[in-house]
């Protein structure tokens, strides 16, 4: 079986492209059987992750690379027939400044203040979230979202690559 992602997108770190990514992801998730509100939430979580890369990782430089990869997940397989998918695994990679994964935290929601909500939203929407440093440079964010009613098991394989 081909272990490569079923959808792979390279975009420049320009906010111009964010609405297109949101629409693409919403459409794909809809075809994979996610409920309409969940499609919007997945697109929101990815949008927040991309904004964080652009804003904090690349200091708003608009010409740096970001990779978005999507795998369908299912019974025993990392990449299954989309029609039988139990969920998706999304991996966002960049060449931005590396930070310690443990320091990437959502803020305390008891404090009513602007900013710092993006990471909280990602954790709230997705079933699993993992930040890690890439081997060469940059960061990797892996997120899994299962359709309600799908098995609760989380795929162990979280590594990804880009070209």
């Amino acid at each position: 079986m081909n272990d490569g992602p079923q959808l792979r997108l390279r975009l420049a770190s320009n906010p111009l492209y964010l609405s297109g990514v949101r629409e693409l992801l919403s459409a794909v998730c809809r075809r994979l059987g996610f409920a309409e509100d969940v499609c919007g939430q997945i697109a929101l979580a990815v949008d927040e992750a991309l904004c964080n890369v652009i804003r904090h990782g690349y200091d708003r430089a608009a010409d740096r690379p970001i990779w978005l990869n999507l795998w369908t997940i299912g019974a025993g397989d990392e990449s299954v027939d989309p029609a039988a998918a139990e969920g998706i695994r999304l991996v966002i990679e960049d060449e931005a400044r590396q930070v310690e994964p443990g320091k990437i935290k959502g803020r305390n929601l008891e404090e009513i203040k602007p900013g710092g909500l993006g990471v909280h939203i990602i954790h709230e929407v997705m079933d699993t979230v993992q930040y890690e440093k890439r081997e060469q440079n940059g960061m990797r964010l892996t997120m899994v979202k299962r359709r309600p009613g799908a098995r609760a098991a989380v795929p162990a394989k979280l590594e990804a690559s880009h070209g």
């Binding site: 609405s19 949101r22 929101l44 949008d47 927040e48 009513i112 602007p114 900013g115 909500l117 993006g118």
Partner: peptide, 16 residues
């Protein structure tokens, strides 16, 4: 039709 956390932050700032 769509708002992200930067939009929410803008409104929180305005509320304050």
């Amino acid at each position: 039709p769509y708002m992200d956390s930067s939009g929410v932050a803008t409104l929180v700032e305005a509320l304050q």
